[in-house]
């Protein structure tokens, strides 16, 4: 194993983590501010990817596709909040899970009805095609570098929004005590719709970015949704900073686990056995990480102690 390969894998882990952050930031905000478990977050991710693929396919412009993804996901998020989610805030988590699970089915079959059962095509923009040469002879795909950069910029923007702006103050206040902020004259339902649309837009953006290097198909959101839940549990529910740290941690654990565990088992098992055992264990690595974090910090890394 060379140092170059290891650095490339670190970048891969970072890129995966940044993508997970975009997905889990919205989820943790929605859970933290509204106390709502939103399983339909993965469907919003899928809507982002489909909107980007449809618009990029029709216009030939990836940037327009990204814009469409943001708009479609935010609109879908706001619509869902206004029509369905709003009725669920006072219900218990089981009702929320049931209703948002129904939304997954509705979105999946609706997307199939609109776009058909076969995957759509979405390609990386020409300017970001192919590999880039980095210092020290590292070769890394341009598009993945762009994902890392854009993701970090979005993360910084989100931190600034939460920490520095009036809306951020309200979101934090809503997290701390939603009745009090209502009593202080803030239109809480408008705030909820806004937070929901913001979270949805981030998920849609993630879907569009990833759609260019993965398969744009019905059901693409659910595996990512599970990872996003792992991230927010590790990071501490409601904490944006926790979601960021946990995303990077999960991204690195997953990528390095897939890479290193088969090598590790290869030192004392034959090649194919080591492969099978290593791969199987690698797929558990992030859940082991989650269990370990929860043993030492039951509310997650940055979770508020209860």
């Amino acid at each position: 194993m060379s140092a170059l390969l290891f650095i490339e894998q670190l970048l891969n882990g970072l890129q995966f983590g940044v993508m997970l952050f975009l997905m889990s930031a919205g989820l943790t905000l929605i859970f933290g501010v509204m106390g709502l478990i939103n399983l339909a977050h993965g469907s919003i991710y899928m809507i982002g990817a489909f909107a980007a693929a449809a618009v990029a396919g029709a216009t030939g412009s990836f940037v327009l596709g990204l814009g469409a993804a943001l708009a479609a996901a935010a609109a879908a998020g706001a619509l869902v909040e206004l029509t369905v989610i709003r009725r669920l805030y006072d219900r218990d988590h089981l009702d929320q899970v049931l209703a948002t699970f129904a939304l997954i089915l509705i979105f999946s079959e609706g997307t199939r009805w609109l776009f058909g059962s076969f995957p759509l095509f979405l390609d990386v923009p020409d300017a970001l095609r192919g590999p880039a040469e980095l210092p020290f002879g590292i070769v890394y795909p341009r598009y993945r570098l762009a994902i890392i950069l854009i993701g970090l910029v979005v993360a910084a923007g989100l931190f600034a929004l939460i920490a520095k702006t009036r809306i951020g103050v309200r979101i934090r206040a809503g997290e701390a005590d939603r009745e009090m902020i209502g009593a202080l004259g803030v239109d809480i339902s408008k705030l909820y719709t806004l937070v929901f649309a913001l979270g949805a837009a981030l998920a849609g953006f993630a879907g569009a970015m990833v759609g260019a290097i993965q398969s744009v198909e019905v059901g693409m959101g659910e595996p990512v949704l599970i990872l996003a839940f792992v991230v927010i549990v590790i990071g501490g529910i409601g904490s944006i900073r926790g979601a960021f740290v946990a995303s990077i941690l999960v991204g690195l654990t997953d990528t390095l686990g897939r890479f290193l565990l088969p090598i590790l088992f290869g030192t004392f098992l034959d090649a194919s056995g080591a492969n099978i055992v290593g791969t199987a264990l690698a797929s558990m690595a992030i859940y082991i990480l989650m269990a370990a974090v929860l043993i030492f910090r039951p509310t997650g890394l940055f979770g508020a102690a209860t």
């Binding site: 390969l5 894998q9 995966f16 070769v139 993945r144 398969s215 990528t255 791969t279 797929s283």
Partner: peptide
Amino acid sequence: GELYTQLGQTDYAAELAQIRA
């Protein structure tokens, strides 16, 4: 090289890095 990936895996960056190396 011989690798098993996860069923339903969508990101192959780690595998591609190994193929390259």
